[in-house]
């Protein structure tokens, strides 16, 4: 009974993390920004009376007004509506591509780090080769094979980011593997699978979470860059990068088409970067 009381008073790891994260004001701002964009993305249809691709050529390139908060684009589409709906696409690509690369990267990293030997050599060389290409270049090359579309851009970004996660997990696994509790687990007859899922994985996951948050930021920028180059989302999708590419012809007449999608990308990415920084500070034992 007495022991249980002591245990209850001790902070759980999550609580300890949350207190440390909460003390970081910038991280909370980031959380606020990301939460804001998620809410906008979910409730997009309720925020506007226009459809993102309904054209009205009589209202081309209007400046911001009470009926069009951000003005209109060259097809007379409401820019506010398009930016709001764009949040759906960018967040979707960001989350999904990073989920993909984190899962594959973690799997490969664990295999390479835990089993070592020739598997490690093959996987590590594979990572080296992928990392030898600048990421946007590799993404462009992959999209060139698959064909330009938002979905293929997502796949390309996911592939490009696999080695980052893989290397991270591999190095973490290599150090965790040396810990005495792993030796103890093995001594009491625990199998590889159980050691991996119960000890190695939980102890290697913190850096993946940090990297994942920062990678969402990069993925959103990369998706927008591919859209900008015409290799991601296609017309009439309200994707922020694609919208910026279209704005190039109207820089003089309607700078609103340039400002708003750009600010949307910047703030979303800033939000994820702030959270990522905060998570790193909160999860990294060296910082305490």
């Amino acid at each position: 009974m007495k022991n249980e009381e002591i245990v209850e008073k001790e902070k759980t790891p999550f609580r300890e993390f949350w207190e440390s994260f909460r003390a970081n004001r910038l991280a909370l701002v980031g959380l606020g920004i990301v939460f804001f964009f998620i809410v906008i993305a979910i409730f997009a249809p309720l925020l506007t009376s226009y459809a993102p691709d309904s054209q009205n050529l009589a209202d081309r390139l209007l400046p911001p007004s009470a009926s069009h908060y951000f003005g209109t684009d060259d097809f007379g589409r409401d820019l506010f509506t398009r930016v709001v709906y764009g949040a759906r696409l960018s967040l979707w690509v960001g989350f999904l591509s990073v989920l993909g690369s984190a899962l594959i990267g973690t799997f490969l990293g664990i295999v390479a780090g835990y089993y070592g030997k020739w598997l490690d050599t093959i996987i590590s060389r594979f990572f080296d080769i992928l990392l030898a290409f600048p990421s946007i270049l590799l993404a462009i090359a992959i999209v060139a094979i698959l064909g330009p579309s938002l979905q293929n851009a997502l796949i390309a970004i996911a592939i490009v980011n696999v080695p980052t996660f893989g290397r991270l997990v591999r190095s973490k696994v290599l150090s965790v593997k040396q810990e005495e509790y792993i030796l103890a687990a093995r001594a009491i007859g625990m199998g590889d699978t159980r050691i991996l899922t119960h000890h190695i994985l939980p102890n290697s996951i913190a850096p993946v979470i940090v990297q994942g948050t920062l990678a969402i930021a990069t993925a959103i920028i990369e998706a927008a860059a591919l859209g900008f180059l015409g290799m991601g989302a296609q017309a009439p999708m309200p994707e922020w990068g694609k919208m910026l590419a279209d704005s190039r012809q109207y820089l003089t007449d309607a700078p609103g088409t340039l400002f708003f999608p750009g600010f949307a990308i910047m703030f979303t990415v800033l939000g994820f970067n702030l959270i990522g920084d905060g998570l790193r500070d909160a999860l990294d034992p060296k910082m305490k």
Partner: peptide
Amino acid sequence: ALVGISLPIFWLGLMEQWTFSI
């Protein structure tokens, strides 16, 4: 610096063109 790492480079380029050229 935080804003700098969050900027899409192509947007920054367009903003520069708009400000300093146009």
